[in-house]
Amino acid sequence: MTGRQGVVLYGPPAAGKDTVTMALAELSPRYAQFARLKVGAGKSAGYRMGTAEQLRELEAAGGVVYANSRYGNTYVIDAPGLDDAFAAGVPVVHLGQVDGIQALVDGYPADWSLVLLWCPRGVTAERSAGRGDSDTAARLAAWEATREDLDAHPSMVWDLTVDTTASAPEDAARLIDQLLAQRAGAATA
């Protein structure tokens, strides 16, 4: 292993990825959400906005670890961005596709802790409406796609699974922090 630790939070829309990441950052400043490169329009908070030309240049240089399209945009996990994130601490990468997790784990060497955050479809609908999303129907379709993705990858092994309807974000953050401490201890033993 590289000695670098990273966290992957996987789950459907509104499962709590942002909220748990904020709780991790409050627990320790070493945790920070990885800001994916976003090519498109809409929400820019939490992203590094880019252009189609920048994406082509990254692809040509072999710098794209994983890219996916959703909500009419392209979201990119890039090696230069990950380099910067690891230099700053422990990146927390949000993903909604198992293929993305595999691409990240296989394409960027680090000790990745894989965390499944889950909530029922109805909770996604309530949370999405409650936060004022204008595309709740698309988020529910993404919830369905996430469920199908999990069903299609029954051998996927999670280091930690958290039901975000039963665990407070602070509790989930503590569990993740403990997981990383245990893994770091095991790596040095």
Rank of each mutant, 00 (worst) to 15 (best):
G63Q: 15
Y10G: 04
M156Y: 09
V39N: 09
A61C: 03
W112E: 00
T164P: 06
V92D: 05
A45N: 10
G107R: 03
G3L: 10
A166Q: 12
A141M: 05
E148R: 14
G107K: 02
E26Q: 15
P109R: 15
E170F: 12
A181Q: 12
R127H: 05
R56Q: 12
E126Y: 05
F34K: 00
R48P: 02
G50H: 01
G42L: 09
G3Q: 07
R183G: 03
R127P: 06
Y75P: 01
N68R: 15
R30F: 11
D106L: 06
T2Q: 05
D78L: 02
V93P: 03
L95T: 00
V105P: 00
A142Y: 00
D177K: 06
G81R: 02
A67Q: 11
A152N: 05
D83H: 14
D18V: 09
L24F: 03
Q54P: 07
V7M: 04
R183S: 04
V76P: 05
Y75F: 11
R174D: 06
L114R: 11
A138R: 14
L179C: 01
V90T: 14
H153T: 04
I101T: 02
A125Y: 04
G132I: 10
G81D: 00
I101E: 09
L24Q: 01
A129Y: 09
L116M: 09
Q102L: 13
L150S: 05
A138V: 03
R147C: 04
P13S: 04
Q182E: 12
A67S: 10
A141L: 08
Q182T: 10
Y10D: 01
T51V: 10
A60L: 15
S134E: 13
M22N: 01
A168F: 15
S69D: 02
Q54H: 10
V157R: 13
A125S: 01
A138I: 01
G72N: 07
A35H: 14
P120S: 11
I101Y: 07
D151Y: 08
A184C: 09
G132P: 07
R30Y: 09
G72H: 07
G107H: 01
G63W: 13
A110N: 02
A67Y: 03
A23H: 08
V98P: 00
V7I: 13
L37C: 03
V105C: 06
A23D: 02
A129T: 14
K38C: 04
V7R: 00
G63P: 08
L58G: 07
D84K: 15
V93K: 05
D18R: 10
V7G: 01
L150V: 10
A137K: 05
S69A: 08
S134K: 13
L55R: 13
G63T: 07
R30K: 08
C119K: 00
S128G: 15
G6I: 00
L140H: 06
A15G: 12
A172N: 01
S155Q: 15
